[in-house]
Design a protein around this nucleic acid. Structure first.
Length: 602
RNA sequence: CGGAACGUAGCUCAGCCUGGUAGAGCGCUUGCCUUGGGCGCAAGAGGUCGCAGGUCCGAAUCCUGUCGUUCCGACCA
């Protein structure tokens, strides 16, 4: 490709709304154009990057046995009602809908379990066809509350979504592990350092779920991990060991104490320390957080209790409530109570809620890891400006408690698998694998005929990779002060040739053209920068765009030399005749490294 | 959903408080100069100031509404 024909448009200044490197650089280098909030046009360069990502992902899913298909983006409401997900997606308002001329309502695919399950139920009729995996890489829609960070969180994006069908859980386990390997191979070929973490699988079915994370400070997920034991989990599901609270000098019976205008636990403890309870600490307090959990049929008021120094994990709480509700669930939405709702539930100003008498909620859940029912605590008294000191859950509770896992694990907590301590980092979720079980097949009546001559619902797995998000994650992981440093496997072009020198310098132009033609003939994706620009402009542009390898034909040409330079690497001078071969070899070596890394995946 | 800010040239922004009919830098076009890190010289094109009302002799500027964008927040008691 000749640069004069590429419609290359680079910006010298950062776009005003870009907060993270990938958004900033992709916009400045002309890969990305914002069409609306959370809506982006992929420019010619990004199109090539996405195409390469797509190809590598497809190759790996194919290798794992996947069959590529294309499913409709517009999906009938009736189909989604068969799985029961129409209501949940309407409640959470994450699905965009459209109407056709007759008024029929369609959802725009956020995922495609319903469509593919319906398909499988029609075309997969015998156990002899199992296992089978269908997948696509297609546009998805999510009505995000807040799209942001450029390509990272958008309303419309490209996702690889795969769905596997099985007759046994053992078969699902095999495919699930095969997909894990395929993902890891794909990410290594794509040049991403991704790692698998245990993920929340929701309270409904699902015997396992892992997310694939790219470590990045701008990531929206928090991961707890221990490099020694290999434990890694999303904070939404992470387990840990937490040191128990030590003893303190508590009154024998729960004692009502006037704690004027101190609602927050640290303030309450500080107040008590100077008013007769010198050794009580936040770990001895009982934190009560009030929520409203919405299900399809009702709003349930919920009180959640954790130790005073810890936080409630809303994902864990949602799952706990769903387990508690059973058939009355699932929880579609969980939100903190408004101050007015808190007053109604406790009869007190916010800040003084507790599990004693006077608390009026439908459900009360206590954290089993951090709370000891027999230990004395400090709890809100459900009376403005008052706490109960020496309160015991086993003796003084005014509500019926359910014990479950609610606490948010944090750095410094013990590794649940061993003796080490957990650390914390941020990650970008680029993939997710999930054992679905029979949730969709049972709901939708998707069955096959087994060897036993009986009908059985499919056992399913589903798997996703954020194809377009991978491009953004790659930039987050590979950039420097000058611009993007694309991994060779996904770079829009692999080599750029920059002729410099006086216009009409025939020797320079011939050298550049010769190298260009030679690389083209070798199938290398190469750019010849034939623009009438000063060298500085050209160098800046290609560093920004992130082409991995650069050949400069300039003042050395008189001595028969050109310069070669990998992006971010050292300059070397080579005879003109050797430049193309050197570039081709360098490219092939980098690709071979990626493939070797992929082959090393266990 | 709640709150705040912003919307002026392709981009980044100034002008608005104190109304008088629009500016800078970059980019773009043309010509000259020539070419090793975006910064040589000159000339030029380009905006009914998001949209709709209102006030006024006069509105980018003041008022109201509306649309859009961005950021923050949604209560851990």
């Amino acid at each position: 490709m000749r640069a004069s024909r590429m419609n290359l448009t680079t910006l010298r200044e950062d776009p005003a709304e870009a907060e993270i490197a990938s958004h900033r650089l992709l916009t400045r280098a002309g890969f990305l154009y914002k069409s609306g909030a959370g809506l982006y046009l992929y420019g010619p360069l990004l199109q090539r990057v996405v195409e390469r990502i797509r190809r590598i992902v497809s190759e790996e899913i194919n290798r794992a046995g996947g069959l590529e298909i294309t499913m409709p983006i517009m999906q009938e409401q009736a189909l989604w009602e068969r799985s029961g997900r129409w209501a949940t997606y309407q409640a959470s308002r994450t699905m965009l809908t459209v109407k056709d001329r007759s008024g029929q309502v369609f959802g725009l695919a956020p995922t495609a379990e319903e469509v593919v399950t319906d398909y499988a139920s029609k075309v997969v009729t015998s156990y002899k066809q199992l296992p089978v995996t269908f997948y696509q890489q297609h546009t998805k829609f999510r009505d995000e509350i807040r799209p942001r960070f450029g390509l990272m969180r958008v309303k419309e994006f490209i996702m690889m979504d795969a769905y596997s069908f099985h007759d046994t859980t053992a078969s699902l386990d095999v495919t699930y592990d095969g997909m894990r390997v395929a993902y890891q191979r794909a990410f290594r070929r794509l040049g991403l350092e991704a790692f698998a973490v245990e993920a929340d699988s929701g309270a409904i079915g699902g015997s396992g779920s892992h997310e694939f994370m790219v470590a990045a400070a701008v990531g929206e997920d928090t991961i707890l991990y221990n490099a020694d034991s290999g434990y890694a989990a999303n904070v939404e599901r992470a387990h840990g060991r937490i040191a128990p609270a030590g003893p303190w000098t508590a009154p024998v019976a729960a004692t009502l104490v006037h704690t004027p205008a101190v609602g927050a636990i640290t303030d309450v403890i500080g107040f008590l320390n100077t008013n007769g309870y010198a050794d009580v600490q936040a770990v001895h307090a009982l934190k009560c957080v009030l929520f409203v959990a919405k299900t399809a049929t009702a709003d349930h008021t919920v009180a959640a209790f954790v130790r005073g120094d810890r936080d409630v994990n809303e994902v864990k709480l949602t799952n706990a409530i769903t387990r508690l509700l059973g058939d009355a669930g699932p929880v579609l939405n969980l939100r903190p109570m408004t101050p007015d709702e808190v007053r109604a539930a406790t009869g007190a100003e916010p800040g003084f809620a507790g599990p004693g008498t006077g608390l009026k909620v439908h459900l009360a859940v206590a954290d089993k890891l951090t709370l000891d029912p027999a230990a004395p605590t400090v709890a809100g008294a459900n009376k403005t400006d008052h706490h109960l000191v020496g309160f015991r859950l086993d003796r003084d509770a005014g509500v019926t408690l359910t014990w479950d896992d609610l606490v948010t694990i944090r750095a410094g907590d013990g590794d649940p698998k061993g003796t080490g301590v957990l650390d914390e980092k941020r990650g970008i979720e680029v993939g997710h694998i999930f054992k679905l079980g029979t949730k969709y097949s049972v709901a939708m009546g998707a069955e096959y005929l087994g060897q036993d001559q009986k009908r059985h619902p499919f056992i399913m797995g589903c798997y996703g990779i954020g194809t377009s998000r991978v491009a953004a994650a790659a930039v987050e992981q590979h950039h420097d002060a000058d611009g993007i440093r694309w991994p060779v496997t996904i770079a829009p072009y692999q080599v750029v040739i920059v002729p410099t020198g006086k216009p009409g310098d025939a020797a320079v132009e011939q050298a550049a053209e010769g190298i260009y033609q030679e690389l083209l003939s070798q199938g290398i994706d190469v750019i010849l920068d034939d623009r009438d620009q000063k060298p500085g402009v050209k160098f800046k542009d290609w560093d920004l765009v992130g082409i991995p390898y650069r050949i400069v034909a300039g003042r050395g040409v008189a001595e028969g030399l050109v310069e070669v330079k990998p992006r971010g690497g050292e300059v070397a001078n080579l005879p003109i005749a050797q430049a193309a071969a050197a570039a081709a070899i360098w490219i092939k070596e980098r690709i071979a490294e990626r493939n070797a890394a992929a082959d090393a995946v266990r």
